[in-house]
Write a protein that binds this DNA or RNA. Structure first.
Lengths: 168, 168
DNA sequence: CCAATTGGCACTAATCTAGAGCTAATCGAA
DNA sequence: TTCGATTAGCTCTAGATTAGTGCCAATTGG
């Protein structure tokens, strides 16, 4: 199915909340730390899965974590510097769209039997890149804005993307 | 996972092949009929699943089927008149992206507990629409072209979409 | 009648998802 | 030091989804 996992939803909810909190903080100061428990109290989502999502986001450098009492999470960067693509890549892996194609379309070393004659690999690879570019062009900040201009979501889509530096 | 199902892959392979065959036919004549067996002989994909995908496409009016000996499938329309969105919608349902949101964002009658406070529903609903619009703007014909201009894939993305007429 | 084909139903096995349980490590405060 | 709150890591289970197969009916042409 072409659907995000719950983990990704929960992670996005947490990130949007963290972005909100960061906005409220005075500039110059480090953004406030919010615990998974606090987020779980605000939104009716299972705390454990919320914590798992946040842990994953921490491992991929999207949030910083502080352990111990009064610990929690905060965005590692400004919300304008975090792309939806980066978040989705962290929480559910790179969207491959088809089973055969990893993102490295050039040095494909996988075992797709169809490849030599597959009539859709190349077109779908580009489509995949297109969706990915769409995600890359959407910042966490733009998700935070409640009343969003739909066209703003597509900024960057028409531009070519030559790498996925946010992932590795 | 943000991935198409095998059924969709197989269906797309079949459709691209059917589009190729239709291109070879002289204009004015009905396009040739290709059996699932023939497609299964060309591409190393399970025939049964190929047939299932084609059956689904038939039920949604994307291909026409002929039963009996020398039966098979052919595109119901020109490849330029079949959108990728229509195909994906047929083969794996409307891409909902999040678990809560059906496409009818207005009269949402579902049971998402997060909804009253969900900070991502509205933005992701627009993102979903964006992806859908992306799919709608890609024709089967453009998938058939082997060397495709990446930017061509994004035609129609920046335009607003007020309906999903291709689906029903 | 016979062979080829689509159409429909049920079934199994593998994979993925959602969620919970448990424990260790870390930190602040009493 | 002791204790509570928190993140971090691991395993486990149940459910849903996906991939694939089997079987047979209906249709069509020879």
């Amino acid at each position: 199915m072409l659907k995000l996992t719950k983990r990704t939803e929960y992670g996005l909810i947490a990130l949007v909340h963290l972005a909100d909190q960061a906005t409220l903080a005075p500039a110059g100061e480090p953004v406030p730390v919010v615990s998974a428990r606090a987020i779980g109290d605000l939104f009716p989502v299972p705390r454990r899965l919320l914590a798992e999502a946040l842990k994953q986001l921490q491992q991929d450098g999207i949030v910083n974590s502080t352990r111990g009492a009064h610990g929690g999470y905060r965005l590692s960067r400004a919300a304008t510097e975090i792309s939806l693509g980066e978040v989705i890549s962290s929480l559910e892996g790179e969207p491959s769209l088809t089973s055969c194609a990893g993102l490295g379309a050039a040095g494909s070393n996988h075992s797709c039997e169809v490849e030599p004659v597959c009539p859709i690999r190349s077109p779908l690879a580009r489509l995949r890149t297109g969706i990915w570019t769409l995600f890359e062009g959407i910042t966490l900040q733009s998700l935070t804005d409640r009343a969003i201009d739909p066209n703003a979501l597509f900024a960057g889509v028409a531009e070519e993307n030559d790498g996925f530096s946010a992932t590795g």
